[in-house]
Design a protein around this nucleic acid. Structure first.
Length: 171
DNA sequence: ACGATGATGAAC
DNA sequence: TTCATCATCGTA
């Protein structure tokens, strides 16, 4: 059973989406080939108050897609060389997204986008077969009791409260 | 432990 | 228009 995840899956609480995204598949179509990778590590960036989130200082040219429709891709460049892949969650005008850190054998958000040839051309597009990048539920059950919850990476600047939140989920 | 490498946002 | 900063990675 292949079920494509659509907007309604992402239009709810970010932590809840993050938890449910683990074990789902990220599908990338390149030419006539499809690559499917099982998602095993994500990070949540949730709301205005989250000081680790790009949206904390309000809407800007870069982060505006976080304020848009759930199920859209938020892709940006860090450190001058790595594209980060995020999926927008929650209601419109509520800024939140989930960073995909690891899928399949690929560990690390920068390596993942390089492997799947993902760049900012996808920013603001929705996740669907049409854009060549989407999610599927294979139907296999994931054991939620096995989910590890630890602090996020590279967000020390957010201060002790927000840097310490266990918003990094892994299988 | 550190440098690569460039867009972004805030200050001036 | 300049400047510090950065949701990382590979090499040492």
């Amino acid at each position: 059973m292949r079920k494509i995840l659509s907007k309604n899956f992402f239009e709810r609480d970010t932590l809840e989406v993050a938890e449910n995204l683990l074990g789902k598949y990220l599908i990338r179509k390149i030419g006539d080939k499809e690559i499917a990778l099982r998602i095993n590590e994500v990070e949540a960036y949730d709301g205005f108050e989250d000081k680790a989130s790009h949206a904390h200082k309000g809407k800007t040219e870069r982060n505006k897609v976080m304020f848009g429709e759930a199920g859209n891709w938020y892709v940006y460049l860090v450190y001058g060389m790595h594209n980060m892949l995020n999926i927008v969650t929650g209601e419109k005008d509520y800024p939140a997204a989930i960073l995909i850190r690891g899928a399949g054998d690929i560990v690390g958000p920068g390596k993942l986008t390089k492997f799947l040839k993902i760049d900012r051309k996808l920013n603001g597009k929705n996740s669907s077969v049409k854009t060549g990048l989407w999610f599927e539920d294979s139907g296999e059950a994931t054991d939620k009791t096995k989910i590890k919850r630890v602090s996020r990476i590279g967000v020390d600047y957010a201060g002790p409260i927000w840097a310490k939140k266990d918003y990094r989920l892994a299988l």
